[in-house]
Computed example of a mutant assay.
Amino acid sequence: MDCFTASEIDEIDRLWRRLPIDHMWTGWATAGEAPQQVWIFRTRAHWRRFPLTKTARGYALADERGRRVFRAPTLADLLQAVEAMPGLDTMVQD
C-alpha cells in the first residue's frame, strides 16, 4: 500500500469541509505522519467506518470487512463513493 501525502490529506479535509453539516459523511481520521489508510466515517442507518487506501491507479474504498467496493482515479470521486454505500438496513437479507 502507498502512503497518503500531506496534500492528499489536505484534499480529503477540503472535500469533507465543503459538505453541508447534515451530510452522511460525518468525518474522517488517520494516524501517523505518512498514513497508509484513512478512515471515512458515515452515518445513515448507524455509524459506519470505511477504510480508504491508495492504489496504483488511484484510491479504493472498502467496507467494514475490508472488501474493496469502490475504486476511483481521484479523491474528488470519493464523495460519490461515500454516498453510494448502502445503509446497514438495506444490507440485511431475510
Rank of each mutant, 00 (worst) to 15 (best):
1 M>S: 14
3 C>L: 02
4 F>R: 09
5 T>P: 01
6 A>C: 00
6 A>D: 12
7 S>Q: 15
8 E>H: 05
9 I>D: 03
9 I>F: 01
11 E>S: 09
12 I>M: 07
13 D>A: 12
15 L>G: 11
15 L>V: 02
17 R>S: 14
18 R>D: 11
21 I>M: 04
24 M>E: 13
26 T>R: 12
27 G>L: 04
29 A>V: 01
29 A>F: 02
39 W>M: 13
39 W>K: 05
40 I>M: 10
42 R>Y: 04
44 R>A: 07
47 W>D: 14
49 R>M: 07
52 L>A: 03
54 K>H: 01
56 A>F: 01
57 R>E: 15
57 R>T: 15
59 Y>T: 03
62 A>G: 08
64 E>M: 07
64 E>C: 02
65 R>G: 11
65 R>C: 04
66 G>D: 08
67 R>T: 13
69 V>P: 01
70 F>M: 09
70 F>Q: 02
71 R>A: 13
71 R>G: 10
72 A>K: 00
72 A>V: 10
73 P>W: 01
74 T>F: 07
74 T>N: 10
75 L>P: 11
77 D>S: 10
77 D>P: 00
79 L>E: 11
81 A>S: 09
81 A>F: 03
81 A>H: 11
82 V>A: 06
82 V>T: 00
83 E>I: 03
83 E>S: 05
86 P>L: 11
86 P>N: 06
86 P>F: 02
89 D>T: 07
89 D>S: 13
93 Q>L: 11
93 Q>I: 08
